[in-house]
Amino acid sequence: MRILLAGGAGAIGRELTPALVAAGHEVWATSRSAAKGSVIAGAGGHPLVMDVYDVASIDAAFEAARPDVLLHELTDLGEYDVAANSRIRIEGTSALLDAAAGHGVERVIAQSISWVVADGDSLAEETEPLRPGIAPGAPELEQAVLAQPHGVVLRYGQFYGPGTWRSSQTPATPEALRLALAPMAEVSSFVHVADAAAATVLALGWPGGVVNVVDDEPAIAAEWMPVLAAALGAPSPEVPASLPHGRPISNALARSRGFAPRFASWREGFVSPDGGVVRSATAL
């Protein structure tokens, strides 16, 4: 397939391009900066500069790629700017989908999140709606993508691994470590970024709808925080006294469709030399 990957230089985009190429697909991957083109080209993709808020720029990307599939992996979380990320989910998604319709692209796969469904103790399946206001723009993104002739929404778990906040490259500054170790709820579900990319490649053949992409072991904060802190060479922080309960997320649907994460649990991924989280002895 010919694939237009919007967000090719981000954490998952860097994993997706080589995975897609290895699966035999042709990939045109976008970034906002020409300077990142070498990263995309080095992974086997065709780099494109695209501004998702510039209609002409988006049309030029579609004209160059002539895609069979649009993969929407755009985020704006570099500075943890919630408003900017909400804008890209709403305005950016709308602009991409308008261009896809105009260029006859019916198959769309987009990034969403799994961890903002209603709190509870039972495993959350894909029928659970996202709670409004917790992740601004995510419900609107899902609704827009699912309205496409063939729209797939991937609700990823919390990322870790190369290029994410939870990686061996996380700066050893108090603020960076705070973000890496901050629990969003008492119960969380994780996924290694390379496993998320592998699921996304599989999703090219999945029917439309929502699919959770998480590992096999939901975790409470008191369990995962010390393990991640040790991997990052940081002191183990205290678990906040008051947290939303959260919800364990089921990956049964993705598993039934062939998803087999290399790191079935964060317990393995955080401490594996191949997980991209453990700092080298020289870095500690």
Rank of each mutant, 00 (worst) to 15 (best):
A6I: 06
G7D: 04
A11C: 15
E15A: 14
E15M: 08
T17P: 03
T17A: 12
A19C: 06
L20H: 10
A22M: 07
A23N: 14
V27Q: 04
T30Q: 04
S33T: 09
A35I: 00
G37Y: 11
G37Q: 09
S38L: 08
S38M: 08
I40H: 09
G44L: 11
G44F: 08
P47N: 09
L48N: 04
V49G: 05
D51V: 10
Y53D: 14
V55R: 15
V55L: 10
V55K: 14
A56M: 00
A56L: 02
S57P: 11
I58K: 05
D59T: 00
F62W: 02
E63W: 06
A64H: 07
P67L: 03
P67I: 08
D68T: 00
L71C: 06
L71P: 00
D76G: 00
L77F: 14
G78V: 07
V82L: 13
V82S: 09
A83S: 15
A84H: 04
S86A: 15
S86T: 10
E91T: 15
G92P: 11
L96Y: 06
L97V: 13
A99E: 03
A101F: 09
G102H: 02
E106I: 00
E106T: 11
A110P: 08
A110Y: 00
A110E: 03
W115F: 14
W115T: 02
V117G: 04
V117L: 06
G120P: 06
G120K: 12
D121F: 04
D121A: 10
S122C: 01
E128W: 05
P132F: 14
I134S: 11
I134P: 05
I134D: 12
I134H: 11
A135K: 11
P136K: 03
G137T: 03
A138Y: 10
E140V: 06
A144F: 03
V145I: 03
P149S: 07
P149T: 10
V152L: 12
L154G: 04
R155F: 10
G157R: 07
Q158Y: 14
Y160Q: 05
P162W: 04
R166A: 12
R166F: 07
S167V: 05
S167K: 09
P171F: 05
P171A: 06
A176C: 10
R178E: 13
L181C: 08
L181G: 07
V187Y: 04
S188M: 13
S189T: 03
V193Q: 01
D195G: 09
A196P: 10
A198R: 15
T200M: 10
T200K: 01
L202M: 10
A203L: 07
G205I: 14
G205M: 01
P207N: 12
G209W: 07
V210Y: 11
V211Q: 02
V211D: 01
N212Q: 09
V213N: 05
V214F: 00
E217G: 02
A221H: 15
A222C: 09
A222E: 14
E223C: 08
M225T: 13
A230E: 12
L232E: 01
A234C: 14
S236E: 15
V239M: 12
P240C: 05
L243D: 13
G246V: 07
R247S: 05
P248Q: 03
S250C: 08
S250M: 06
N251G: 14
G258L: 04
P261R: 01
P261W: 00
F263R: 04
S265E: 08
E268G: 00
G269Q: 02
V271K: 09
D274R: 05
G275K: 03
V278R: 13
S280H: 13
L284Q: 10
L284W: 14
